[in-house]
Simulated scan of single mutants.
Amino acid sequence: MLTGKQKRFLRSKAHHLQPIFQVGKGGVNENMIKQIKDALEARELLKISILQNCDEDRETVAEEIVRGTDGELVQIIGRIIVVYKESRENKQIELPSKG
């Protein structure tokens, strides 16, 4: 579980990122979860945008992505979801301590 301090740190890191996945009419599917998992392993921090034509609400989409990838939800802002997952092979982001 991320602390408030860690979430603030990750939000500032994510600020300049571009969304690399889009959730549209089909919602979240197995294939998308697998691709997001792979991208999280490579990058640790991702932005995912939810298109206007997506049938599910943003909280549901975020929950499905987090559950499917074992990631951590950093933020939902507008139609953008920010997700973090520490990489096993490719660790780049050093989180502030939990203290």
Rank of each mutant, 00 (worst) to 15 (best):
G26Y: 15
G26C: 13
G26R: 15
G26K: 15
G27W: 01
G27P: 00
G27L: 11
V28N: 01
V28Y: 03
V28L: 03
V28R: 00
V28I: 11
N29P: 05
N29M: 04
N29S: 12
N29H: 12
N29V: 12
N29L: 08
E30M: 08
E30W: 00
E30H: 00
N31Y: 09
N31F: 12
N31H: 14
N31A: 14
N31T: 15
M32Q: 15
I33R: 01
I33Y: 09
I33C: 07
K34T: 12
K34E: 14
K34C: 07
Q35R: 14
Q35C: 10
Q35I: 06
I36G: 02
I36Q: 05
I36F: 02
I36P: 03
K37N: 12
K37W: 04
K37T: 13
D38C: 08
D38N: 04
D38I: 11
D38T: 14
D38E: 13
D38Y: 09
A39G: 05
A39M: 10
L40D: 05
L40Q: 02
L40T: 01
L40P: 09
L40F: 07
L40C: 07
E41R: 00
E41L: 00
E41Q: 01
E41H: 00
E41I: 00
E41T: 00
E41D: 13
E41C: 01
A42C: 09
A42H: 12
R43H: 14
R43M: 10
R43T: 06
R43V: 02
R43W: 08
L45K: 04
L45A: 04
L45T: 00
L45H: 02
L46F: 04
L46I: 11
L46T: 10
L46C: 07
K47M: 09
K47E: 04
K47Y: 07
I48F: 05
I48H: 00
S49W: 06
S49F: 06
I50E: 00
I50M: 11
I50Y: 01
L51S: 13
L51D: 13
Q52P: 13
Q52I: 06
Q52A: 13
Q52M: 06
N53I: 10
N53V: 09
N53F: 04
C54P: 01
C54R: 07
D55K: 12
D55A: 08
E56H: 11
E56N: 10
D57A: 05
D57E: 11
D57H: 05
R58S: 11
R58W: 08
E59G: 03
E59H: 06
